[in-house]
Write a protein that binds this DNA or RNA. Structure first.
Lengths: 160, 160
DNA sequence: ATCCTACTCTATAAATCTAGTCAACTTTGT
DNA sequence: ACAAAGTTGACTAGATTTATAGAGTAGGAT
């Protein structure tokens, strides 16, 4: 499960991808239009700044802006910066692999092997989607058809 | 990120899938051979029992056993029972959908739309793998080649 | 100088993870 | 029938992470 931190962070990044290049957005505005607790968003944007995803400017006319064009920012990397590895389990991570203390024989741990598959599937989606593409998803109207894996899935009606 | 509860639960289920049908396994044994804190495992197996995945028997010769053959138990459902929905975010869940309080227009929320894809990808892996298949993964020796999505991925070496 | 804005520090409430203690039940030996 | 031992089950408690709020500091624009 994604934490709220990552969720809010992604929303903020989408918001920033929507401002004209060279202009900034205020934390207060981002927070208000996305229903995010402002102080929490402060901290989140701070982390994203430290991770090099955004730049900040203080004082009047200040605010946040993306550090690179949204087409060059991968959704997966934003999530990694805020929530850590994509893998459901540390020992299945490729970027931040860490042996898990239980598990004597890693190469035969069934849980890890399944979670490696899951990690691969998640990364396939998140790492191949840029911030720009993600923002694009939200711009088409209702009844969107969303391509998922091999098949086509209809949105917004069949989810209860 | 999967919680330890789900991770331990899966390990326990794999263990149970390994005992001869009709026989039981002791919590203490499962805990010892999988390096799981016994008391925690007690609680986890309790939940799995309430969810109908396992049966328990008290007293001498007691213990736990699977409620159904491992080929009929989906890995995804075990995870759901312990950690809740597979979707990284509640509003992207199909089984336990719940509107998220932030987000005025769900059908256009870019974060949700991306996470729907991720959910689909995760479910594709976890719901199409039975407990029996998962157990099978851990039984081949080293240097296993694991089919993932479209491509082939080599294990155990390239993960630092 | 003063306003505006990002930034820092501290604190609180909830959830997760783990351990300890004791109660309830089931089989077995006498 | 009764006691004893083996086992799950329930209840409490502490440590750690997550999510949020408040008050105040620092830096830049006019």
């Amino acid at each position: 499960m994604l934490t709220k931190k990552a969720k809010y962070g992604l929303k903020a990044m989408v918001h920033l991808a929507g401002v004209r290049p060279g202009e900034t957005a205020l934390v207060a505005d981002i927070a208000a239009s996305n229903q995010i607790p402002k102080k929490f968003l402060d901290a989140i944007l701070g982390e994203l700044r430290n991770a090099g995803f955004v730049h900040s400017k203080k004082g009047k006319g200040g605010g946040y802006m993306l550090a690179r064009p949204p087409s060059e920012i991968g959704v997966g990397n934003i999530v990694r910066a805020l929530d850590g590895p994509l893998a459901p389990i540390q020992c299945a991570s490729k970027t931040v692999y860490r042996r898990c203390d239980d598990c004597t024989d890693e190469t035969r741990c069934a849980v890890r092997l399944v979670m490696l598959r899951a990690r691969e599937a998640i990364a396939e989606v998140l790492d191949k989607t840029s911030l720009e593409q993600m923002r694009g998803l939200g711009e088409s109207g209702d009844g969107v058809r969303l391509l998922v894996g091999g098949g086509v899935v209809r949105q917004a009606m069949d989810m209860a």
